[in-house]
Nucleic acid binder design. Structure first.
Length: 201
DNA sequence: ACTGCGATGTCCT
DNA sequence: GGACATCGCAGTT
């Protein structure tokens, strides 16, 4: 018999995030994002990511240098970069690369694993399980993440990424990013092949 | 199924 | 003043 061991409370170390952004984006697939709030704990498996980098990527918020909004991207790796967009939505990124290099991985979709009733409460009565976290703004709403968490360390106890499932290269699809115009040709989006919680096909 | 578009605040030119 | 790493609703095929 085969035993699958999961260690959902083992945080990924800062060194996991400090390297090449494309590699981090790929390797975040299958990991568990853990969020604890006053209402309870939630866990989602990361099933879709996108890489953003100040160098060679005109769609990166930091492409034209540091501003008040993107400053966290220039800081140390393993922290959260959360921004507000379209007048009503939040998106969360994980900062990568060494301090001084602005880069991050956008978390685009989660497969709900635990705390699903709380995610539904956060998302509102119209959300069903399939739609709880299959988009960057939806998952922030499900996990109660706003700009209040901008700069938040993933070594904290209320918001972190833990070891998850091993993902084979054969199960990773690499393609272009969604919802951007500049840099639309870069193959910097990664998702789990066939996973029903990916935001789009 | 698909397509178009309104909401709504902040950032940056 | 335009753009925006989005979402959900309304209308059509």
């Amino acid at each position: 018999m085969t035993t699958v061991t999961r260690t959902p409370d083992q945080k990924l170390p800062v060194s996991f995030y400090s390297g090449d952004t494309l590699g981090v984006a790929r390797n975040l697939l299958g990991k568990f994002l853990v969020r604890k709030t006053a209402g309870g704990a939630m866990v989602g498996k990361i099933v879709e990511t996108e890489a953003y980098h100040e160098v060679g990527d005109p769609s990166c918020h930091a492409h034209r240098g540091m501003t008040a909004r993107n400053a966290v991207m220039f800081g140390p790796p393993g922290r959260l970069y959360v921004y507000f967009t379209y007048g009503m939505h939040y998106c969360m990124n994980i900062v990568t690369e060494k301090e001084g290099v602005a880069a991050a991985v956008l978390i685009r979709a989660l497969e709900p694993v635990a705390g699903i009733p709380l995610m539904q409460k956060n998302r509102g009565p119209k959300a069903i399980e399939k739609n709880l976290a299959n988009g960057p703004a939806k998952l922030c709403q499900a996990l109660a993440i706003t700009t209040a968490q901008n700069g938040h360390s993933l070594q904290s106890d209320d918001l972190y990424v833990s070891n998850g499932e091993t993902v084979l290269d054969a199960d990773v699809v690499t393609t272009t990013r969604i919802g951007i115009s500049a840099g639309a040709d870069l193959p910097w989006r990664f998702y789990l092949r066939g996973n029903p919680f990916v935001s789009k096909k």
